[in-house]
């Protein structure tokens, strides 16, 4: 008795996919043989079918007006969209470079730089730590070692980040405002 009841529950849980032909062959066959012998489940199936058929009869309504977009609406402007994407990426790259250079500066990777200059005045420089950066190959002679223009680089990168970031924000604001305007019109 208990087994029969749980079998009915299982079958009734699959009636909907059964109606839509979504059951695999073994599930379908098991279901059909159960339905043959179980009037309660057959009734459930018919009732669900009646509901689905009712929904099939819901008629489509004609829209009250056309939803064509007026000429005044903002165009997607592929060029603008493209430049927005490129700007965003360029800003991110410049910011990353800036962080990298600053980090290098702070860990004394380069000779010179905003941070390094200050620490250099306080004590002696550790030699040999710039081996990776120096392109002369050997250890440079003391006193006339190659000095990277790190502080200039840092300031230039900072400027680039500010300009690119500013342009990105302006474009983004304009796109947002354009979108809102279009929805209101």
């Amino acid at each position: 008795m208990f087994k029969r009841k749980s079998e009915c529950q299982r079958v009734q849980g699959m009636l909907s996919p059964y109606i839509d032909g979504q059951l695999g062959p073994s599930d379908r066959e098991g279901m059909e043989s159960h339905l043959e012998g179980c009037q309660a489940c057959r009734r459930e199936l018919e009732s669900l079918r009646a509901t689905v058929n009712l929904l099939h009869r819901v008629t489509m309504v004609s829209p009250p007006r056309s939803f064509a977009i007026a000429k005044a609406a903002p165009k997607p402007l592929p060029a603008a969209v493209w430049s927005f994407g490129v700007l965003r990426v360029a800003t991110a790259v410049a910011a990353l470079l800036l962080v990298f250079v600053f980090a290098g500066d702070a860990t004394h990777l380069f000779k010179g730089g905003l941070i390094e200059e200050r620490t250099a005045q306080q004590g002696t420089l550790m030699d040999g730590e710039d081996g990776e950066v120096s392109d002369t190959g050997g250890v440079p002679a003391e006193g006339e070692e190659h000095v990277w223009p790190v502080s200039e680089l840092e300031l230039a990168l900072l400027g680039v980040v500010v300009v690119l970031g500013g342009a990105t924000v302006v474009l983004w604001q304009r796109r947002r405002r354009g979108g809102e305007g279009a929805l209101k019109s």
């Binding site: 489509m60 309504v61 829209p63 056309s66 939803f67 977009i69 592929p78």
Partner: peptide, 26 residues
């Protein structure tokens, strides 16, 4: 439409507006 041709996009609107409106209505 991707290139910004509004007339072509509006032809797509014509094709789908009935379905979209009915989906929204229901």
């Amino acid at each position: 439409a991707k290139e910004g041709d509004l007339d072509c996009f509006n032809q797509l609107v014509e094709r789908y507006q009935r379905e979209v409106y009915n989906l929204s209505l229901r």
